[in-house]
Amino acid sequence: MTEQTKPIELHYWPTPNGWKVSIMLEELGVPYELKLVNIGAGDQFKPDFLAIAPNNRMPAIVDPEGPGGEPISVFESGAILQYLGRKFARFYPSDERARVAVEEWLFWQVGGLGPMAGQAHHFRQYAPEKIAYGIDRYTNEVNRLYGVMNKRLSGRDFLAGEYSIADMASIGWIVPHANQGQSLEDFPDLKAWFERMKARPAVERGLAVGKEEREKLNLAADKNAQSVLFGQKAR
């Protein structure tokens, strides 16, 4: 296994996309340095971040010990998982048949589960106007995708058979299932997978990365909002 002597920079905020990489780094047990990207404050648009993530989306990493021993930056969560899996030869098999299975379910998440669940979140939780068409469309599509995942996990412990980056990519989008209008009771094999995933210590640690910082900022935002509401100057 490749040894990592210098910490990998993880540019991150605790969201389902960010959790993919924090879980992977915790599973690998390699040193990393957390660089919080407060997406609520617009940190993702700062020039320093755009230099490594031109799509102004976190997560991104900077590996000071990249190919040839030179630093490399990687953006897009799926690409980061593949890079780390190749570098450390873990959770991303070298056997072509096994690798294809992992990539199928990784890209299923990147192209389907994540975007559709994100739209369900938007229309159900954050849209300034409740649009029934949008709510129904994306809630139903997430329900369909949960069904696909549930069927895949029938008789399997993990999406590609062995635990892999495909599972790490998907777990964060199942965590807020209630906000997507879904009940895991309707998907017993998916629910069993979800419990297996949560029981992994590295998954638990990965999901907790940055949680305290986000909660502090949320409390500050709530305090400011209440001060404005009651005509008081925020302090």
Rank of each mutant, 00 (worst) to 15 (best):
G42S: 10
G69K: 07
I72Y: 12
R144W: 11
G147D: 09
K46P: 08
A51I: 13
K151R: 13
A220L: 12
G69A: 05
A53K: 09
P67Q: 08
E215C: 00
L36V: 15
N38H: 15
Q82D: 01
T139N: 00
P14E: 06
W108S: 02
A79K: 04
Y163F: 14
A89D: 15
A221T: 09
G78C: 04
W193E: 09
S77M: 02
L25F: 13
G42C: 09
D167M: 00
H121A: 10
A132R: 08
A225V: 01
V37S: 10
V209S: 08
I39Y: 14
G29Q: 10
G181M: 03
F75Y: 15
A51V: 12
K46A: 13
A60R: 07
I52R: 11
S164P: 07
R214D: 08
E76C: 03
V74T: 06
L184W: 10
P188L: 10
N218T: 12
D189A: 15
V102N: 05
I174Y: 01
P64G: 07
K46E: 15
F230T: 15
Q82K: 02
L219M: 08
I52N: 12
L81A: 01
S73I: 03
G231F: 09
E65V: 02
I39C: 07
G155Y: 07
N143C: 03
G231C: 03
V62P: 12
I174A: 02
N143A: 11
Q180G: 06
P188D: 12
Q44V: 05
Y163C: 00
L34M: 14
Q226L: 11
G42H: 14
E26R: 00
F194A: 03
A41L: 10
I171N: 00
W108F: 15
W173D: 02
L81W: 03
A202Q: 09
G69D: 06
K130G: 01
K151G: 06
A220I: 05
R86P: 02
S164A: 03
A160M: 04
A169C: 09
P54G: 11
L217M: 14
P67Y: 12
P201L: 13
L113N: 05
I165A: 01
Q180A: 13
K191Y: 13
R152S: 04
L145K: 06
P59T: 04
F88H: 10
Y163H: 04
P128A: 05
A178K: 14
P93G: 04
N17C: 04
F45K: 14
R99P: 02
R205D: 00
R99K: 10
V37C: 11
R124W: 07
G29W: 14
P128F: 12
R90V: 00
V21W: 11
V209K: 08
A132C: 01
G181L: 02
H177Y: 15
P67D: 09
I23F: 01
D222F: 05
E33V: 01
K216W: 09
G42I: 08
E65T: 04
S77A: 14
N218A: 12
